[in-house]
Design a protein around this nucleic acid. Sequence first.
DNA 1: ATCGACTGCTTCAACGTTTCAGCGCCATGG
DNA 2: CCATGGCGCTGAAACGTTGAAGCAGTCGAT
Lengths: 360, 360
Amino acid sequence: MTDTVPGDGPSGAGRTAGRRASVTLKDVATAVGISQSAVSMALSDHPRISESTKQAVRAAAARLGYVPNSAGRALRAGRSTSIAVVVPHTGQHVFGHPYFMHLLVGVTAEANARDAALMLSTNPDETHGVAAYERVLRSQAASGAIVASASITDPNVNRMVDAALPVVLIGRFVHLPHAVSVGIDEIAGAAAITRHLVEEHGLTRIAHISGPLDHQTAVDRYEGFRDALAASGKPCTHTLAVGDFSEESGRAAARQVLDSMTDVQAIFAANDEMAYGAMLELRSRGLRIPEDVALAGYDDFGISRLTTPGITTVHVPAEALGRKAAAVLFDLVDGTAPEPVHTVLPFDLVIRESCGTHAG
Amino acid sequence: MTDTVPGDGPSGAGRTAGRRASVTLKDVATAVGISQSAVSMALSDHPRISESTKQAVRAAAARLGYVPNSAGRALRAGRSTSIAVVVPHTGQHVFGHPYFMHLLVGVTAEANARDAALMLSTNPDETHGVAAYERVLRSQAASGAIVASASITDPNVNRMVDAALPVVLIGRFVHLPHAVSVGIDEIAGAAAITRHLVEEHGLTRIAHISGPLDHQTAVDRYEGFRDALAASGKPCTHTLAVGDFSEESGRAAARQVLDSMTDVQAIFAANDEMAYGAMLELRSRGLRIPEDVALAGYDDFGISRLTTPGITTVHVPAEALGRKAAAVLFDLVDGTAPEPVHTVLPFDLVIRESCGTHAG
DNA sequence: ATCGACTGCTTCAACGTTTCAGCGCCATGG
DNA sequence: CCATGGCGCTGAAACGTTGAAGCAGTCGAT
């Protein structure tokens, strides 16, 4: 395979690349015999480049295995193509929860679709939390961030939003009305499942096991629960026990509920893990689900399918949330977004067996 | 606060920054009144810069909020400071497994400690799998990669290793003896737990539920199991059922084992999820654990602590593996590694109640 | 024949960083 | 009194990319 190259340049272009770190525009340019700008323009399909040249360039680029250097591109463009996902607290805390997993799946899918890289940032530790991802963003390694923080009081979220960087929040942030966010209507979700318990199954003595009330989701789900009861027009009695979204706390809360409220007909836990904890407690007391006590959860991240009986729950489309958040972020970065301040995705009410037989 | 600046430059350095995209070396330089090279050298603590200048530079940098632009730095250095984690198959498949979560925790911790960014790469889909992360790496967005793939037959792993990029594999890759890897001795782990069943509890009729045998871990754990039985010197009977590491498959495998092998005394599942599936099957048949059938798992990623009885298992230090893999990768990238081809981390045998009462 | 427009490329500058050679200065030693 | 050299900094170059401006050549219209 003889490969004649116009040898007008002093740079020895004829070598066989050997341990060449990477193929640059210049390599492609000398291979084709044109300037590197022309190569750049050809590859971006600039109209001022002839079709024949474009073909030659594309062929040479493919043959040499040219891949644009992201640093050069980012430097020139003033911003990188990658986006960051910032997750609160330590990595430990984050990856433990299936919610973030599903979120990440969605985000990576969208990022992959746009050929963008994804950076993952967690707080190195709880105390000087800002450090890690602040540097990532300020160094312009990522052109925007998706923040998946649950706590109402997290000051980092405010800082990020204030930093004039493209940021998309996942969830609802009542104190940041102008921040761009993606979420579902948690209030409506909780109301829907509560309404199901009340109207479909005629249950009127219902306990709610909420999450920690400095989490907006916990607050919203509790609010939806009360709203639905109030709107039902039936004389409902309810009580509250607060958990921390863990199975263990759910079990403890159920214990508390069962000890304090007589004749509980249903327990609505603010997530499936707590519902599962409640299930264990009910079972240990010999109470049948749903015959003696109906049970409902929230999230539908897997566990609720596997239990016996399956837990009636609200399906949170976490993967779709991640996808959407990434899409919104890309639009924000590109500046091609018609003010998509708050995006609300639909949820699904998933009726399984734990809330009663599905008669009319 | 009057802030006098030597006004010899034509660039209006006195403005209040306003919507300035980012602070560069030049901004710090004009603030201090020296050249940007001097600022660069001062910030990197170059000995040829006076202490007083360094202090002034550091103060100005802090005041202005200077953060080095990663693209500029990467471009100049020829490589970026970030590393990539490449995970096999689709995101869906990956994030579902707690193993990867723990791995990621470790990797992020180490990356954070080195002020490096972490990129996450998954295959966009199973068919043209290479695309996403190959581009990430070839574009030099990351200077090296950690590959966490389990499949023996994954061709992408070979490609990555061949690509002359710094790559650290997690696990054992028998067909890639020269690749740098980090893992635990799965054979020894499986042998240890098997030995415990045989020698500590005197069990001799043992079934193994393995993972899919195109996963090296599954193969190794099975091998360790057989090795230990062979080495025990006792007349042991064993059988094998193959699962796919899922709870459901574990239950199915247990069903198969219980139907085919009479008087099974113990089941050793190749991971905890399958052990949990086996537990459900045993329970549904009214068999007590450990009185009627002892049970052991592998991984210890959480579930095995919560069950009743707790499952005896081998603790896989996934977080430590992630940390170590990242550390090795950084060394590899820096070129400061004394050939750490295969790193083997210790495991822990975790004795709980599922294998029998812990008498002598 | 001359002008203008168009075509297809090249040249040049810029993004922010690091690093190396070099420069003026002063102190020291011969 | 001049050579030497350390000190503290400056200037320039380079990394790979992009895009505006420029520049030959051609073609159609005047």
